[in-house]
Amino acid sequence: MLSCRRLRKTYQTDRGPVDAVRGVDLDVAARHYVAVIGRSGSGKSSLMAMIGGLSQPSAGSILIEGADIWSFNDNAMAQFRNRRIGYIFQFASLLPTLRAIDNVALPALLDRHSGTADTYNRAAQLLTEVGLGSHFDAYPSEMSAGEQRRTVIARALINNPILLLADEPTSDLDVETESEIMALLLNVNHERGTTLILVTHNLALASKAEQVVQIADGAIVP
């Protein structure tokens, strides 16, 4: 389902180039739950961003369902991010001027591949599934961190992606909320069959994964 080959990411800084990811080869099977672990600054987020189509690799290739995603033009890449990828960031990533239901519906509205009424029905259903059935009209500033993260998960699922990328989605949450969010993500993986790649420092969570990828200094530890 996912195949990365000789993937590199080098950032240009004032002090010279910094290699964040160095020659990563990675294969992920469809419907699997993959945990990515490693110390801060090891290159996990850079790897996730490249796989999610958010950051162009300096070298190497990423094939998702056989397509080299970084060969897409701008519009095709935008459509790929919109329809095929669900991305959950390690920070609250909702638009502050939109209600919860608008935030969830936004990716579908941007691509306009379904009607407005259908989109909002699906957004309401997803919010209900993540336990926010009574928060449709709430603005991000009116929700707790956990509720915001649930909303982000609902947004990531609005277009039925094939790959869900979660980059430390619970790093700023309390233990109880973290458990709820992780249960939600694993449920998405099990029930919907959505491939899940999760960056985490929680080794207990990683132990439940079908595949664990440990990264150190930009490379996969064998």
């Binding site: 958010l54 519009n75 991305y87 638009l95 941007l110």
Partner: peptide
Amino acid sequence: ELGLLKAIGAKRSQ
């Protein structure tokens, strides 16, 4: 915020 919009599928023209 613009990066976030691009991340969820907004085109450059949008």
